[in-house]
């Protein structure tokens, strides 16, 4: 067991990836959407990092863009990391991480349902809480229920 600090993790990552792909931001890493799968599998499969547990996936609507936030941790080394992926308002699509961590499955469906962010490669992407025929995505800031 060897717990790494955020600086060390960020150092390891930036030695491997270009700044356009991964950049540190307020104690977290901002990953470009197209590099997400690659970076995530590096994080999971490198023995030194070993991020085997995906704590949570969530998304935030910043009006200009969506941000999908991943919280990862390593059970063995007990260090953790926050990843952020940004996608523009008009093209809300990020790659799905279900192939790496099954734990993302229901959470990504939840984000798709409530926030309207799509996940490319998700095995069963459909509404989870709301019903077929519900209009809009309630957690978006511009949502109004019309009543």
């Amino acid at each position: 067991m060897q717990t790494l600090s955020f600086g060390e993790i960020a150092g390891l990552i930036s030695a491997k990836y270009a700044p356009e792909a991964v950049a540190p931001f307020q104690g977290s890493l901002v990953v470009g959407g197209e590099h997400l799968l690659e970076v995530a599998s590096y994080l999971r499969d490198t023995p030194q990092l070993d991020f085997d547990y995906l704590i949570s996936v969530t998304a935030v609507d910043y009006r200009s863009h969506f941000e999908v936030v991943y919280h990862l941790t390593s059970l063995q080394h007990s260090h953790s990391l926050v990843l952020r992926v940004r996608c523009p308002q008009n093209k809300p699509l990020v790659p799905s991480l279900v192939s790496l961590w099954r734990g993302a499955e229901l959470q990504e469906r939840e984000i798709f349902d409530l926030m309207g962010v799509g996940f490319a490669g998700h095995p069963n992407l459909k509404r989870i809480f709301l019903w077929d025929g519900f209009k809009g995505h309630p957690l978006r800031k511009d949502y109004s229920s019309g009543t």
């Binding site: 085997d52 547990y53 995906l54 704590i55 059970l75 961590w101 099954r102 734990g103 499955e105």
Partner: peptide, 20 residues
């Protein structure tokens, strides 16, 4: 392994032998 991969937590995870 499945429990960890599926982000299971709490008593359900610990009953499978992962002391988190």
């Amino acid at each position: 392994e499945l429990a960890v991969n599926c982000s299971v937590s709490g008593p359900t995870l610990r009953a499978s032998g992962v002391a988190r």
